[in-house]
């Protein structure tokens, strides 16, 4: 067809070069802009990581838990499971779209329902993952410079010396004559707040380290093999006494026992933003699910609405594929 002699209307919505409905195209517009938002976040994560490239936490050592399996070292299995759940719910979504094209109300209902269930399992898993990350596991010491000192010991495993982490609560020597208690408004300055004191003072950790000859300190600096540097006994005592400032357990927006606080900040922000997308996706899916049940689309003789929420849902899956790679794999 020659462009000069366009058939029908030229302006006012004529021609339709993209041959897609208004709703679908607007969904694609939104997806492109949202994709740019997410890539902005992930690129910012990359920036911070490149900035601390020799000291970034190793994801395999951070996310090692699996529900109901305590003390089992299971790096990444749970995230892999979550990824699979999300891909699976993408599949049920696209099957619902396909059933919609055949105007098969029963099948659309079943597949939409399964998609919603998949989404709920995913969000639940993410909540569990957050909870584990916030609670932490071994505890660590933050130094004056904001670096993290972790503790561990060498143990014999299959004839090899392997560095195993040791929990601070297993070696710290509790001093019952602490002169520092939590400051409360009712018995101190009424206009000053203080959050809970850390579980151990630096002195308690120092005397614990002195009392246990086997315990060594691991810094966050990566060596040539990509593992964190373990200090000698003398260096361990020295760095703790010189620089130790605060006992930290778990991760939040200020401190992170696994390493750079930025890692925790970006983890909460990016997975949180993605989780919020999943949540809103679930809510939209539920609305559409009830519309399907009520026969709204049956009356319209078109299930295009299912297709549009489907696009959004697949986009959420698409984003997760990237989050999975850049947070857990690379």
């Amino acid at each position: 067809m020659s462009t000069a002699v366009a058939e029908g209307k030229t302006w006012n919505g004529g021609n339709e070069p993209l041959k897609a409905s208004y709703g679908k195209m607007m969904m694609w517009f939104f997806i492109v802009s949202d994709a740019l938002t997410f890539s902005g976040f992930l690129a910012a994560y990359g920036f911070s990581r490149f900035k601390f490239i020799d000291a970034w936490p190793i994801a395999d050592e951070v996310f090692t838990h699996f529900p109901f399996l305590h003390g089992v070292n299971a790096p990444m299995y749970y995230v892999a499971f979550m990824t699979f759940v999300l891909i699976m719910s993408s599949v049920t979504m696209v099957l619902a779209v396909d059933a919609g094209h055949h105007l098969n109300k029963g099948k659309v209902t079943i597949y939409m329902f399964l998609t919603i269930i998949g989404g709920i399992i995913f969000v639940g898993s993410q909540a569990w993952e957050w909870n584990t990350f916030i609670k932490g596991e071994y505890g660590a010491i933050q130094t004056k410079g904001g670096n993290i000192l972790q503790f561990g010991e060498y143990v014999e495993q299959d004839g090899e010396q392997v560095f195993k982490r040791v929990s601070v609560k297993d070696f710290a020597v509790i001093n019952n004559h602490k002169d520092r208690t939590i400051h409360e408004k009712k018995n101190g300055l009424w206009f000053v707040n203080e959050s809970t004191l850390p579980a151990y003072t630096i002195d308690e950790v120092v005397s614990g380290l002195e009392a246990h000859d086997n315990v060594l300190i691991r810094t966050q600096i990566l060596n040539e093999e990509g593992e964190k540097t373990v200090l000698t006994r003398a260096e361990s005592l020295k760095s703790l006494k010189d620089n130790g400032k605060l006992y930290v357990e778990g991760a939040n927006l200020q401190v992170n026992e696994y390493g750079s606080p930025l890692f925790a900040d970006f983890f909460f922000f990016i997975t949180g933003f993605h989780g919020f997308h999943v949540l809103s996706g679930i809510i939209i899916n539920i609305i559409i699910f009830f519309n399907v049940l009520l026969g709204t689309y049956e009356k319209r003789r078109s299930y295009e609405m299912v297709e549009k929420v489907g696009l959004y849902w697949h986009f959420v899956d698409l984003v997760w594929v990237f989050v999975f790679t850049f947070f857990y794999l690379v």
Binding site: P17, L18, K19, V32, A35, L36, G46, F47, F50, K51
Partner: peptide
């Protein structure tokens, strides 16, 4: 979908993201 829609979505995103990632990683 038609090639037009596909290119409008995919190329826009890819070029902008590549540029953004390059700039930020370089500066990092």
């Amino acid at each position: 979908e038609t090639p037009g829609l596909r290119r409008a979505v995919v190329w826009t995103a890819i070029f902008l993201i590549l540029y953004l990632v390059f700039i930020l990683l370089q500066e990092g």
